[in-house]
């Protein structure tokens, strides 16, 4: 069975979800629950750190597809960071780099939330 965990952290107003393991149709509902909980508690600035994510399928990408508009409408965003090459390649195949803020480091994403004008 696919192994998957999420560690949740906070940096001031930014919520950080650190994904570990393999994200597929079996484990995607776990990520979805975390994101819907954050939206319900009006936390709209989310960074997802992929440094310990070994694998992703389109079921995992689907979670980001389903909630990004809701977050942006509320003035927030989901920023994606620290992807391994094989994980980035899946996002790239579907054209996500033009739709999502994908950054090398978590600190860059936090900075971008804190000083949005500086990133332009």
């Amino acid at each position: 069975m696919s192994q998957f965990d999420i560690y949740k952290r906070q940096h001031q107003s930014v919520e950080i979800l650190e994904l570990n393991g393999e994200l597929d149709a079996h484990t995607a509902p776990v990520l979805e629950q975390h994101i819907t909980k954050l939206i319900e508690s009006e936390k709209y600035q989310i960074v997802v750190n992929f440094s310990s994510l070994e694998y992703i399928s389109s079921a995992g990408l689907g979670v980001f597809m389903a909630y990004i508009e809701d977050l942006r409408e509320r003035g927030g965003d989901i920023k994606l960071t620290n992807m391994k090459e094989n994980v980035y390649n899946v996002f790239d195949l579907l054209g996500f780099p033009t739709l999502y803020d994908i950054l090398d480091e978590e600190s860059q994403a936090i900075k971008r939330f804190q000083n949005p004008s500086e990133s332009e």
Binding site: S58, A59, L61, G62, V63, M65, A66, Y67, I68, E69, D70, V90, L93, L94, G95, F96, T98, L99
Partner: peptide
Amino acid sequence: VPERVKQRQKGGVGVYLIKR
């Protein structure tokens, strides 16, 4: 894909990925 994101549609891209 951009339209599916706008419509908040989860996925629907599996066959496309397989073909790619």
